[in-house]
Design a protein around this nucleic acid. Structure first.
Length: 809
RNA sequence: GCCCAGAUGGCGGAAUUGGUAUACGCGCACGACUCAAAAUCGUGUGAGGAAACUCUUGAGGGUUCGAGUCCCUCUCUGGGCACCA
């Protein structure tokens, strides 16, 4: 790390102001009576690693600058923070260092809040929440029971993702490229009964509402792709000599005459029911068994499959008998788990057909018209779609790629799923929901179901949470019949904790006195939601940001929220890079924010992070670069220290530059272009320093404006300067300066003189100079004269106050 | 394979509607201060050329009076999805 270049005592100044802000509750808005609320949210960190990551600080600083700016623009900014401390990530960390998660959470909490204080953000401290506190997870559990009540939580046995290292199931969204989102281990498939949330019910709304919210486009695209809507048709194929049918989903029903074979996923139930018909069943079974064991990656390589000898399907278009196959490239979880294969018009079907030497029937000509399809020949594809579906008795169908959210985890460190299962009720056919006899949700007045302290908290690996071996936890009485019953022992996915934390902050304000449905909570919700600006990482595109939208929609339907979309604006910040790689421990390029803050101060460090590149792009962290900001802050401080009121008048240029700076800094903050806002402040300082030697100087009021412009970026030093300028109320509550257009206007303008589009000279002329005069002036110039000399002038392009271009032969 | 973002000096990056390419900062060089160094301050800094001037925004083509910016083709880098029928 480079060494700082200055002796001004930032540590004293920073501590002084952090203490005073906290004491005076500078950043606590009046949640109840606010007239102009602005909810400025940042993604709360999970305290798993050794401390606050520089990536956290990067994100938080960017969000804080925006919040501070909005506060100065007159909004009551609510900028809360908390800890997302429940879940596998924190538990894995506790396991690694050999501390109990309950103990570790206390240690991490202290450490994180200390660090969060040091970075100098305008946090609303009073409302901080921790997801692992019973008063918080009471409402995580309540949310689960609400899902249950709305018929959105259900249990189902199916092949699910299982991480062998974390020893738990995972949701589809938490499998990144076939690997566990937390530990990077290859995920395998296991057939298990698990709890799911019916997020697919909201698929269309989740998709459609994307058009109504202002989010970083790449996040919207990721969500759109994840939902994966396709329009097509369901088509039924009869099985020859059997009563059975096979339904398939296709996006191209018009090609049904070209379907020359069928393929079933290995898990498809029809294979089992056709068992007696399939002549090579032993062989088939062997194929199914090996393919089920294979991981997705192994399945990837080459197309394999096996013919179901002796069974045939009937093509509903041609009436022809076509062969059937089982193959693992057909996924059981999408559509009906079976396809009609049209090798002439689908690349994958062709590849498979070539391996198995199957016929290829072309049904669309070069002009996109139907052929070889009987009476439909000659129709355009779109029209044929309708006609053919009608003819074969299919029906239009919209299919989504999205699958339900697998919510249970076989781990310890999470919110216990608040459900009870009663065998006695099952026998009697009783239960809260008909389709799930024996299951009861824990009622609100019995929440939270507290997570007990247990010594043996390690994941067990036999498909059950460690809580399954704690009798005192799982032995309960049935809430309906009073017989001995069993509590659910799985915990819920961490992403459920974080899906509603922005409401948690509002509830914490009243110290959890009021429930989610209480009218006092509702008032806060009504006043403060939706979140006006949410800044965070794009890696949460189809995780937290997706789940949160779903949960908000459910809460809207439950009458808790008035809005469907919790975050009207979301901006994804970029990634910090160092030495050409993403910052990570394995790359050995870790940046410890504490060390930099200790050496340079929070103001300098946060300003450097914002200066190195556009915030939404992310940037390249270079140690040496911080010296530039270090010098700048030092020069600012020294300059203001030197300032004395005097009779001197400001220079016109400097006055204009100040107005331009006010305009640019404000606009750049709005656009999150903090790097160019900072450059502009540097340009201004450079000008001010050169003016010191002249007879001109800006007055005190103008200097105060400059302190305000600096305040969002360097909150401590600007507060100190503000006080030095005789102010008592915090600069962060001062009114953002306005710029005066009349002071920005110049009487002269720079006119670019081009010949054939090539820049020759620049002339400074009066604004509004006519084309004729500009031409004359330009022709006086030697360089221009020389190039024009002896050539015939073809054309002159003139743009007033800007440019003249002589086009010559 | 598909989708998204990007490629500009030695480096991080600027550049409104298509109109002075390289703002701001780092680094470097020289100078001042100093016994000296660091820090600080000043000057310079895209390439070639003595200069006039020429060339220069990943490569190639196009549109235009004029292209870093618009269009087409390609290369590379980063990120996401990945047999989704």
């Amino acid at each position: 790390m480079p060494k700082k270049t200055r002796q001004y005592d930032f540590s004293l100044i920073e501590k002084k102001w952090q203490k005073r802000w906290k004491k005076e509750k500078t950043y606590e808005p009046d949640l109840k009576n606010s007239k102009n609320p602005f909810y400025n949210l940042m993604m709360f960190p999970y305290p798993s690693a050794e401390g606050l990551h520089v990536g956290n600080m990067y994100a938080f600083t960017g969000s804080d600058i925006y919040g501070r700016y909005k506060r100065m623009k007159g909004f009551d900014v609510f900028e809360p923070v908390g800890l997302d401390g429940f879940g596998i990530h924190s538990e894995n960390y506790a396991l690694k260092i050999g501390t109990h998660p309950m103990k570790q959470s206390e240690i991490s909490e202290r450490r994180f809040y200390e660090q969060l204080e040091m970075i100098g953000n305008g946090f609303s401290w009073d409302e901080r929440v921790e997801t692992y506190k019973p008063e918080y997870y009471k409402w995580t559990q309540w949310l689960f029971t609400e899902m249950w009540r709305q018929g959105l939580a259900y249990r189902k046995k199916q092949a699910v993702n299982w991480c062998p290292s974390c020893k738990t199931v995972l949701a589809d969204e938490q499998v990144i490229g076939g690997k566990c989102e937390r530990c990077g281990t290859m995920v395998i498939q296991k057939e298990l009964e698990q709890w799911f949330f019916r997020i697919t019910k909201y698929a269309e709304k989740l998709l459609k509402n994307l058009e109504t919210i202002d989010w970083s486009e790449k996040v919207k695209i990721a969500q759109r792709n994840w939902i994966g809507k396709s329009e097509g048709a369901m088509v039924t194929f009869k099985i020859k000599n059997r009563n059975e049918k096979l339904e398939v989903f296709t996006t191209r029903p018009e090609t049904v005459f070209g379907a020359t074979y069928m393929v079933l996923a290995p898990e498809h139930p029809l294979i089992e029911s056709l068992k007696s018909e399939i002549k090579n069943y032993d062989e088939v079974r062997k194929y199914l068994e090996t393919s089920k064991k294979k991981t997705d990656e192994e399945r990837d390589k080459e197309k394999t499959g096996i013919r179901l000898e002796g069974v045939k399907a009937i093509n509903p278009g041609t009436g022809e008998e076509i062969p059937m196959f089982a193959a693992n490239h057909v996924l059981s979880g999408y559509g009906t788990g079976a396809i009609m294969a049209v090798p002439a018009h689908d690349e994958r079907d062709r590849e498979f057909a070539e391996i198995f030497k199957l016929p290829i029937q072309d049904v669309i000509d070069e002009k996109g018209r139907i052929k070889n399809s009987g009476k439909f020949d000659g129709l355009e594809a779109e029209e044929a779609k309708k006609e053919i579906i009608k003819h074969i008795g299919g029906k239009f169908h919209t299919q989504y790629r999205l699958r339900d959210w697998l919510i249970s985890r076989q781990r310890y460190w999470g919110a216990p799923i608040p459900m009870i299962y009663c065998e006695t009720c099952v026998k009697a056919g009783k239960g809260e929901r008909k389709e799930m006899p024996g299951w009861y949700a824990v009622s609100e007045n019995k929440l939270p179901v507290e997570l007990p302290f247990i010594e043996e908290f390690r994941p067990q690996g036999h498909d059950q949470s460690p809580l399954a071996s704690i009798e005192s936890f799982h032995d309960v009485l049935c809430p309906a019949c009073g017989s001995e019953a069993r509590r659910e022992t799985d915990v819920s996915d961490t992403f459920l904790d974080s899906a509603w934390y922005y409401i948690g902050y509002l509830m914490k304000h009243e110290n959890w006195k009021w429930g989610m449905r209480d009218k006092n909570t509702k008032e806060h919700i009504k006043k403060w939601l939706p979140v006006e600006m949410y800044i965070g990482g794009a890696e949460h595109s189809v995780l937290h940001l997706f789940y949160s939208r779903f949960v908000a929609m459910v809460l809207k339907d439950a009458g808790v929220l008035d809005v469907e979309e919790p975050f009207t604006h979301f901006r994804a910040h970029g990634l910090l890079i160092k030495d050409g790689a993403k910052i990570s421990k394995s790359k050995g390029n870790i940046i410890n924010p504490d060390e930099y803050i200790k050496e340079f101060g929070a103001d300098v460090f946060r300003m450097y992070l914002m200066f190195l590149a556009p915030f939404e792009q992310g940037g390249d962290f270079r140690d040496q670069g911080i010296l530039g900001i270090d010098r700048f802050v030092k020069r600012v401080y020294a300059y203001f220290l030197r300032f004395k009121e005097s009779e001197k008048k400001p220079g016109e240029d400097t006055e204009r530059l100040l107005q331009q700076t006010i305009k640019k800094v404000g606009e750049d903050i709005e656009a999150l272009k903090y790097n160019t806002a900072i450059s502009q402040l540097m340009i201004l300082l450079n000008a001010l320093e050169s003016e010191e030697a002249s007879d001109h100087v800006l007055n005190k009021e103008d200097h105060k404006k400059i302190i305000k412009l600096l305040a969002p970026f360097a909150p401590h030093v600007s507060e100190e300067l503000w006080e030095m300028f005789g102010e008592y109320e915090s600069v962060h509550k001062a009114k953002w300066p306005e710029y005066d257009i009349s002071l920005m206007e110049e009487t002269t303008t720079q006119i670019i003189i081009q010949v054939n589009g090539k820049h020759r000279v620049t002339l400074t002329l009066e604004k509004g100079t006519s084309q004729k005069q500009v031409e004359e002036e330009a022709k006086k110039n030697q360089s221009v004269q020389k190039t024009l000399d002896g050539k015939s002038l073809k054309k002159v392009i003139f743009i007033k106050d800007k440019l003249i271009n002589f086009v010559i032969q």
